[in-house]
Amino acid sequence: MKNVLNKRNLITLVIIGVLFFVVQLLIKERIITAYMRSNIYWIGIYIILGLSLNMIIGITGQLSLGHAGFMSIGAFAAAVVLKTNPTLTGLFIGIGIGVLISLAVSFVVAVPTLRLKGDYLAIATLGVAEIIRIVLNNLSVTGGASGISNIKMLMSWPLLYTFVILTIFLTHNFKNSAIGRACISIKEDEIAAEAMGINTTKYKVIAFMFGAALAAMAGSLFSTTYYIVKPDSFGVNTSINILILVVFGGMGSLSGTIIATFIIGLVNIVLQPYAEIRMILYALILIIVMIFRPQGLLGSQELSTKLLPNFKWKRKEKSS
C-alpha cells in the first residue's frame, strides 16, 4: 500500500487549492469580468469534453466522431430537469439522469460498432450522433428543433472547478489503472493485445462508455451555463471542435488536452469579433498539426509534478 499523502500528491493538492482561491478572489474583486468568466466556463467545459474524448481516441485508439451526441444527451437531461426543479439538486439529478442515459446508449452503440476498425468506426459513431440529433429534433419532451430555452443559470467557479478537477482525477486514474493500461495496449497493437489475453472488446466498450458518461456530464454543465440548448448545437461541427482539442494537445496526453483547450480558449477570446476567421484557423491548425506534428503538442507525454525539480528523474523514455 503506497502512502497516499506522499510529497507529490501534497504538492498537487496545494496547486489545486491555490489556483481555486486565486481565481475565486479575482472574481470576487471583479478583476475577472463577466465576459472573462463565461470564457473560463467555456474552457472548463471543453476540458471535460476533451479529456473524455481523449479516453476513447488517445488512450484506446478508437476514433469516435460522435462525441457531441453524448454531450447532447446530458445537456437535454439537465435542461428538462432544471425546467421543473431549478436548483443545484435539480442539476445534480439532471447530470445523474444524463450520465445514466448516456451510459445505456453508449453501451448499445459500443458493443456492435467497436468491432469495426478505424475509419469505419469513425463513420458509424458519426451516424449515431446524427441519429441522436434527429431524434432530439423530433421529440416533444426536448422541445423539438427549437430546443429548450431559459434554463436556470447555476454555473459558478466553484461548481465548474469541482467538476473539472473531478474529471482530471477520474481520467488520470483511469489512464494509470489496469484498465487504462489494457486500453493503451489496444491502441498500440490490437492483435498483440489480444494475443496477450486482453479482452479487447470489453476494454474498448469500457473506455467508450466512460468517455460518453463524462461527455454527458459536460453537456449538463453546458446547458446550465448557456441558458439554451437546441439539437443543432450538437452537430458534427461540435464533435470536430472537441476532436481538435485532443489532436492539438496530443492523443493520449491529458495535460496536452488541457493546455490545448487553454490555447484555443485564448484564441477564441482574441478572435471573438471574427468568427469566420476563427473557424478557418481551427481547420488550418488541424491540417498543419497532422502534416507536421501528427502526435500533437505533447505527444503521449504528460506534464505533471513529476517533472518538477528536486525529484529523481527516473522516468524511462518511451521507445516509440
Binding site: 476514433l63 466522431l65 478505424g118 475509419d119 469513425a122 461541427n237 470536430i240 476532436l243 489532436v247 473557424m279 481551427y282 481547420a283 488550418l284 491548425i285 488541424l286 491540417i287 497532422m290 502534416i291
Partner: peptide, 9 residues
C-alpha cells in the same frame, strides 16, 4: 482522416 476533416472544415 483527421486531415480530411480539417480540409472539409
Amino acid at each position: 482522416l483527421i486531415t480530411a476533416i480539417g480540409i472539409s472544415f
